[in-house]
Design a protein around this nucleic acid. Sequence first.
RNA 1: GCGGCCGUGGUCUAGUCCGGUCUAGGAUAAAAGCUUCCCAAGCUUUGGAUCCCGGGUUCGAAUCCCGGCGGCCGCACCA
Length: 581
Amino acid sequence: MYLYLNLPHWCTDMDKYDKVIDLCKRRGFFWPASEIYGGVAGFLDFGPLGTMLKRNIERRWRETFIHKNHGIVYEIETPVITPSKVFEASGHVENFTDVIVECTSCHKKFRADHIIIEQAGEVPGIEGKTAAQLDEIISTNHVVCTECGGALGKVSNFNLLFKTNIGPYSENVAYLRPEAAQGMFTNFKSIYTAMRERLPLGLAQIGKVARNEISPRQGPLRLREFTIMEVEFFFDPKNPTCTLLEQVYDKELRLLTEDLVAAEKTDPIEVTVREALSERLIKSDWLAYFMALSTDFISELGAPHNSQMFVGKLAKERAHYSAQTFDQLVKLDRWGWVEVSGHAYRTDYDLSRHQQYSGQDLGVFRKYDVPKKTRVLVAKPRVDLISREYQSETGKILAALKSIDAASLRSKLAAGNVVVDGSTIRPELVEFMEKEESVTGERFIPHVAEPSFGADRLTYLALECAYNEKGDRTILSLPRSIAPVKICVFPLVNKDGINEKAQAIFDAIRSDGFIADFDDGGSIGRRYARSDEIGAPIAITVDYQTMNDDTVTIRDRDNWAQSRISARDLRSYLKEYFCIR
RNA sequence: GCGGCCGUGGUCUAGUCCGGUCUAGGAUAAAAGCUUCCCAAGCUUUGGAUCCCGGGUUCGAAUCCCGGCGGCCGCACCA
């Protein structure tokens, strides 16, 4: 009856999230920031293993989205602190807010526009209303607290941007960026020029962003400061074909299309990229291409194919500049379907806004294959006759005539005299002729497809997917490509020169560039258990046989199988095992 | 932000109702050594908690009261 006393901690009633978080703290992956002062919600400190894991995920993302597409996609780096103007242009200062209204008696908070629609019905253009306008609507429609019927207070805006000042001048307002995207937009034109004016062009960034969330929960999944990995992919809307599509045509995507979402379905359909595009389920080739890369990338981190899907956002749910948005969701144990990336077709919204706010020309020139020749009607005033008749008025009359469209001027004069700027013009004072003009191209603002990932969420995702228990032991089956420690080296016993031999092999492995641990403490079983728990894919054990024939055992983390190989072949074995060329 | 539950070594937990016997017990993890021919074995030793923070009540507070912070859940909110 006392069977349950003195059970180790991992037998207690914890769900997978708790177990992963517990492991992260114990083994040094991550934990709440500023913990010695009580911690603060929405911030995370990464320890040695967590930092290595996160960097490996970032590196694999960089390889997948940037290096694989080198020549088209380039990584850049821009500051976190960004002048106010940038976010005024992007719309964040105005729109990255929630309109909140609080009940004066029970202090519940509501989103002001939602509670109005709920009680007063649809209000046209409610999204653009100011707080004062919403106050007005609340009082004229007698909108009250849904919970207790109490009176509502004043509507206020809560902006999710973190605010700061640049230098000692308080009027020099800046914000911490809430997305890295704006740095790509503000630099687009100069990079486009520097990279020899080629489209398509992708700009990518991996960096910190900050959002002052009202109430962050869910540990590493919702942070106030986190690492974002984004590509802003610029292309010509009149030439939207993805040149890399054949690489991914047959990849399967699990899609919950906008139609399915509207019909309140929850099971995605499975289609190839080819089908998704031919049936117009995805409206942009490039969006589809990045969605295919994302599926592979998330799979590589350990998420099974059938716990992933892309969910289409309905028109009313997505930002007004977006022609189409898919969220990529992965199913987690406690939290259910969680967004790990967003794929938005942002059109030309951002560049157009920055063009407007900065006064800089952010468009590019599209040359026609053959110059367009058009015949245009030109009005030619008879300057000699006009000047003789009107003398000093001539200049004014010529300017006035120039401002009138040639075709309409001709039809008016055909009907008789025309009064221009107070002067009467007789038909014979203007001649008309047709002229041929050649136009070599046109200017346009590129469109943008944006895949965007949260690195911290992905780190948690990889840990949760890797988390396994075998009997009373924990095994972190992290994919080889991202496991922080690749190899653990153990002497089976610490005598008869075995330790020294193991140390020599360990040194050789490290000098080949592998991150490896050496452990000679405690029993061999304990050391295997420790290396499993930090997710080292293989352990190399030096035993008595090594001393005779120079072979070592290689022990697999996931199935505990052992094989012997010659120490001489270790280097090439490891390079192949970890796919290092 | 609101409501509920909660906060004790790195981790999990006993003790909290009914204040003193708690200079806070256990397990596990960690470190040093012994042992050990392959999966958290065993033995010895060691370090580590002013009981989330602040205030109050009391002769005396981990324990009672108030405030704050943090966590989880629900509501609300949110890429």
